[in-house]
Design a protein around this nucleic acid. Structure first.
Lengths: 348, 348
DNA sequence: CTGAAAGCGCTAACAT
DNA sequence: ATGTTAGCGCTTTCAG
């Protein structure tokens, strides 16, 4: 009553387990007739491969480990979706570990994935990762490692990120094209790279379009709804009039939007608004929020593709010629999502 | 340069692999001193257990398979979050498979999970599952199966669901307590059980509070934003006035809300509104939407707990006395989330 | 309390 | 084209 094995099939057909194994794996040295026979017999006996045994012997599990802060965050759910979808079509499965559920579990996560002999790891590094020993260990063990979103250059691993600078540039330029000219920016803490990148994108878009940079139009918030409200209030409190706001994140934009509505300002008529991140609520607020999409599913797919490449390299020339080449870094183009909050001119 | 094994440790200490294995697993027949010695040596040699080998031998992987439509849907992301979090604390990991990415992959998913020898499967059944052969196969193989959200009674598997009837009852009663009395309901297709349950909850709450049931106040929509708009329009088009709406889903509520705003109706002043599902956008629309929360994370935790119980039963009395007992079904209490859209009276 | 021996189910050299 | 053999690293009776 226990699982049928290749031995059972071999016995049934008076052949050997190894022949059965080869036939089932489409090994070239087995005749078509035999393959056919073995495969149908396997089917009849309800055979199902034991992947554990196969993996133990072959050294490959066809499982990749995913390490993300939490699957409860929309962005990561979408990335996982992207990874799993494409991974499956290449015969890989996903072992999921959340690094930031209660406290910090990243080290434990890497340990677990390594114990399970995953063929590779795709990770977004937790905010407060103290040191990177555990990831260095992954590289030492020659397990392909790919990073996305929150990456660490020091790890020298292939990675996928979105171009924050470009996204901010696009957002700002979109506002300019809509005819806004006194465009404010609500930024975030500058020690965080993405916020600084977005600020630079904003500044450069203004410059490029011959608009002045006015420090009074730049607020440094803490990217939250509350901070958005507060920053908008401060912006409007100044004498100089503001006719559009580019917020560093959708939550910040939402806070600003709520404040403006509260004090009776029409959007996009009096003030235009655009956010960043394309959060799940953004289409549904009033007015619906224009924003920059970060392509999470695409990010997952690209990350998996990088893993496959790393895998191929490992299999082929281990002693590759360009050993110290820079790791591949894929920078995704963000996508402008135009909704009500920023469209001043009638759509053509 | 390859991984250290228990043989390496045994050699180092002039003892046997079996002793090392037992020591590492805290087997009672090993002296404390030996355990200590072996464990520190393992640490020094950077030993990491090979879970494949362990699993192959012991028959347990400590991995459970999760089968969900898509991790890109907020609800399922949250459930997975709940499962992974608690599973990990019991030493289990999660192998994730999405059944509804492009087309129908449920059968393939079950197959894959079974090949990997997962210790159990937690699944939310896909909408268009044609037959249940693959799940019956799971039960035949004595692999514990737990269902959540979308379940099938025929499968006779332990399950977790939320009490839709009660949630609808709570939502309706909340509106009544707020002083609304002409309460409409926008429902969904009645052949889907949850929508029918919610309709019943609505009806019973009215009855219980001695309010008349008026068929004119019940709309049967197709639960989408568009349908919500359309249904609201039809409701208001009738002569009898409506002073509150309970919508079968947050998306439906959103559509209705957008329509009411458009024609200049104040909420919650003129009309109160409540939805169902607590979608991620609900706190951020204007007015913020009152709703019923389905406790997805909790659902995940309960599902895992059921798996553990099934596991225990399997280990202990296989020939249990009450073999044909009904499978355990956990019905979670929904949670009323009160926001702006339904609060007529000033909060105490 | 410790060790010897067998084997989980599969794959991959190496023969034939 | 097929079969033989060995062994992946671990756990687990069973002897001592």
């Amino acid at each position: 009553m226990s699982r049928t094995t290749i031995h059972d099939i071999a016995k049934e057909l008076n052949t050997s387990p190894s022949t059965v194994s080869k036939a089932l794996n489409d090994h070239p040295s087995i005749s078509a007739a035999t393959k056919e026979l073995i495969k149908t017999t396997a089917q009849n006996l309800n055979y199902r491969q034991n992947r554990l045994a196969s993996s133990l012997r072959s050294g490959r599990t066809n499982i990749i480990g995913i390490l993300i802060p939490s699957s409860d965050i929309g962005f990561f759910g979408a990335v996982v979706h992207g990874i799993e979808k494409i991974a499956r079509s290449s015969g890989y499965n996903i072992l999921l570990f959340q690094s930031n559920v209660t406290g910090e579990y990243e080290v434990e996560g890497v340990e677990t994935l390594l114990q399970t002999s995953v063929d590779g790891i795709i990770a977004s590094i937790a905010k407060d990762t103290p040191n990177l020993e555990h990831f260095i260990d992954v590289k030492k063990r020659k397990v392909p490692l790919v990073l996305f979103d929150r990456i660490k250059e020091e790890l020298n691993a292939p990675s996928v990120v979105v171009d924050d600078y470009k996204g901010a540039f696009m957002a700002t330029e979109h506002l300019i094209q809509q005819g806004y000219s006194r465009i404010a920016h609500i930024s975030g803490p500058q020690h965080i790279k993405i916020f600084n990148d977005r600020l630079r994108g904003y500044v450069d878009a203004l410059k490029m379009n011959n608009l002045p940079i006015d420090e009074d139009l730049i607020q440094y918030g803490r990217n939250s709804i509350e901070s958005g409200k507060f920053s908008a209030e401060r912006l409007l409190g100044r004498t100089k009039h503001v006719d559009a706001i580019f917020a560093v994140e959708d939550f910040t934009a939402l806070g600003a939007l709520q404040y403006l509505k509260q004090i009776g300002i029409r959007m996009p008529g009096q003030i235009g608004m655009i956010g960043f991140g394309n959060e799940s609520f953004s289409p549904y607020v009033t007015p619906s929020l224009s924003t920059i999409d970060q392509q999470p599913a695409r990010m997952g797919e690209e990350a998996f593709t990088l893993f496959l490449e790393a895998m191929a390299e490992k299999t082929n020339g281990a002693a590759s010629p360009e050993l110290n080449a820079e790791p591949k870094k894929i920078v995704l183009d963000p996508v402008l999502v135009v909704r009500e909050s920023s469209v001043r001119t009638p759509q053509a």
